[in-house]
Design a protein around this nucleic acid. Structure first.
Lengths: 282, 282
DNA sequence: CCCGTCGATACCGCACGGGTATCGACCCAG
DNA sequence: CTGGGTCGATACCCGTGCGGTATCGACGGG
């Protein structure tokens, strides 16, 4: 099975429309139809049921969509990491570390400082991504190592090491009646009149329904809290970056948050190993 | 990057010899040289340093070898699982479960029985593999779900659920002086005069050095114990399959063994989900 | 010093991927 | 019921690119 065929199939399976898929791929529709038919012949499997009105995935087709996306990610990763390794030999960044924008700031700073002091350190490029995008970057090779937060981020499919565990606090506008409390429960935090909890992007890229604002990163989030539009439960290390106008109250029964450093399981990169070694000694 | 180019590169990187790689690929040497040169041009990276006497991998080349193997496994997996899903629609086996030959026998039997009683059960093909081969089968799609034993088998890169944890016992020929003991330490078990511990295949496919026999599966292993050639520390559930001529002694300080059911992290197969659900309820 | 080894280059032919034109099935409007 | 519009499949053509053979050039060893 060739990469090109896989890309064609994934495009058709996502669009469920040969014409639009061909347009997205920058080619004409007939060769695309032919390529899919040939792929089906070679696999000995019907991937799509077509009528002139609708195209639907068969069971085998939906398996190939899942597995094919994973395979294409692996190929993109091979491509990007090879280019990066080559550029590193000429003085470019040797490794890319991704972290949620606004989260784990002190750990990140300490890690970069400590790693830079290592004898075999290479240049580290830092990417600050939106919430939930890190897994994808790690999978398709745009990043080599990530700082994640359990239980919010999924570590499934990666190798990881825990760095720190902490409790959570409610962040709300200072002056709000609840800001004088010394502690709160999750139930109280989730149901504050006039301050609905924000909605994060879910893993499929959409936002759940609800009254709260849609948020993408921590900076945006804290601004919304200061404006009195929302309140949010965050790890207590968020205290370090609180601006004026914000107050925090410990939430007793919130799940503990563990910051972990994660990497692709087959990684044999010395740079990644060095970062992990330094991180676990912080 | 095309699958074909990746296969070519991996062959050359493994052989470190264009002629032999071409032979292995069933093609002539010149087009292979050209394909690698073109891959290097497209990536903008030198993958191999060639002289007329030797071919060696560059740093970028060794990254591409690692990442490329993972990507080729993912593509093979997509191919095999799609074919399987298609055959399942025509009454074939819908899911392949792999377990070490001779290990976890009662759990395996109970799992298969309980799953077959489920309303949405599909046919399960059972593959009994050699020690350490399961990860590979799961990665390249020859299997969909596996029974593994921590800490011996690596669960890195897979999602898994623990099924049972047990202590370990020393299995040795009945009549051996130590067989009358009620308990032993690891230190004692590892150093029995005349009964060296066996050597398992390591993850790179070779055997470690040492005096013990090279073993591949449990059946072979128990036979060697009965013949008085070796003694081995195994989970206590191995008692259930002991034949005559074997005795067991608990090993106090051996690490506990956890039997887990593992699957590829992106799996959305209903059959795999069903097996996992049934297994975790056993 | 010449021969053997090994990767690179030169050149050729065909298979295959992609393009355009068109067909056939299907749905809906009138 | 029929004509137009949509959509995937088919027919046919062309050019690229992959694989083959022949040969070269570099390098080491007997």
């Amino acid at each position: 099975m060739e990469t090109r065929e896989l890309r064609y199939f994934v495009a058709v399976a996502e669009e469920l429309h040969f014409g639009r898929a061909a347009e997205r791929l920058g080619m004409a529709q007939p060769p695309l139809s032919r390529a899919i038919a040939q792929l089906e012949r070679r696999l000995g499997a019907t991937l799509l049921e077509r009528s002139s009105r609708a195209v639907v995935l068969t069971e085998a087709g939906s398996v190939l969509l899942d597995e094919g996306r994973a395979a294409l990610d692996a190929i993109d990763a091979a491509d990007r990491r090879t280019r990066r390794a080559s550029r590193a030999a000429e003085g470019g960044a040797g490794v890319v570390l991704v972290s949620k924008a606004g989260a784990a700031q002190e750990i990140l700073a300490k890690l970069l400082d400590a790693y830079a002091a290592e004898p075999d350190a290479v240049a580290v490029e830092v990417v600050l991504s939106g919430v939930g995008e890190q897994e994808r970057l790690l999978r398709d090779g745009r990043a080599d190592v990530a700082l994640l937060h359990q239980p919010f981020d999924s570590t499934v499919g990666f190798d990881f090491e825990a760095l720190r565990t902490e409790n959570q606090v409610l962040v709300l506008p200072s002056g709000h009646p609840l800001s004088t409390r010394t502690r709160l429960s999750m139930a109280e935090a989730a149901d504050i009149p006039g301050l609905p909890l924000p909605r994060w992007k879910t893993c499929d890229g959409s936002y759940p329904d609800g009254p709260g604002p849609e948020v993408h990163d921590h900076t945006q989030l804290l601004q919304l809290v200061a404006l009195g539009r929302t309140a949010v439960v965050l790890p207590e290390s968020a205290r370090a970056q609180l601006r004026d106008g914000l107050a925090v109250v410990p939430v007793i029964d919130a799940p503990q948050v563990t910051t972990v450093i994660a990497w692709p399981p087959h990684s044999r990169s010395r740079a990644v190993a060095g970062l992990v070694r330094v991180a676990s000694r912080l």
